[in-house]
């Protein structure tokens, strides 16, 4: 399911790049396997693109129930995020903290803030400038999966690093 979703995002990103930049490669656009090495700028295959960050690097980490501790797996994703951010210095990021629906609304807002902060602290620890990072919590207001069992809850207990162009104000 997750892989399929990634595939769809990739396809969509390729489609978008093709539509919005019809002349990007001039007369060479029939030869994608040539000088460009198959990389369509802005697509998920372009390592400098937000799409690449989302899919290849991984834009999110997941948390245990009522916890904001970063797992080993989460730390490895965040290290990759920090690497990407250090080589793509024109991007800033808002880290969104989320909770699953098993909790009261205001507590979950605070819990989401804790999760976003844990991510921010880790990225700063890996050398990302604090000036490029902001946090926000959505508590349980923005689930991405809507079933009411652990398969969905585990995907909703997340912190997502959302890129934006330019330094955050």
């Amino acid at each position: 399911m997750k892989l399929l979703a990634k595939g769809l995002i990739l396809t969509a990103a390729l489609g978008l790049a093709a539509c919005s930049n019809p002349d990007r490669f001039g007369g060479n656009n029939v030869n994608l396997g040539g000088a460009n090495g198959g990389i369509v700028p802005g697509s998920a295959s372009d390592p400098t693109s937000p799409a690449f960050f989302q899919t290849a690097v991984g834009d999110r980490v997941l948390f245990a129930v009522d916890q904001a501790t970063l797992s080993v797996e989460a730390q490895s994703v965040l290290s990759a995020q920090a690497n990407w951010l250090s080589t793509n210095g024109s991007y800033s990021a808002i880290i969104e903290g989320h909770a699953d629906e098993q909790g009261t609304r205001e507590y979950n807002l605070a819990l989401g803030a804790r999760r976003a902060q844990a991510v921010q602290d880790y990225l700063i620890g890996q050398g990302v400038s604090p000036a490029r990072l902001k946090t926000i919590s959505y508590g349980k207001e923005r689930p991405i999966q809507v079933c009411s069992d652990e398969t969905c809850y585990s995907q909703n207990r997340r912190a997502v690093t959302v890129l934006s162009a330019g330094l955050s104000g």
């Binding site: 904001a68 807002l109 605070a110 803030a113 804790r114 902060q117 844990a118 921010q120 946090t135 919590s137």
Partner: peptide
């Protein structure tokens, strides 16, 4: 009210 600063509320 609650105020969150640095992840702490």
């Amino acid at each position: 009210f609650s105020l969150t600063n640095g992840g702490n509320t």
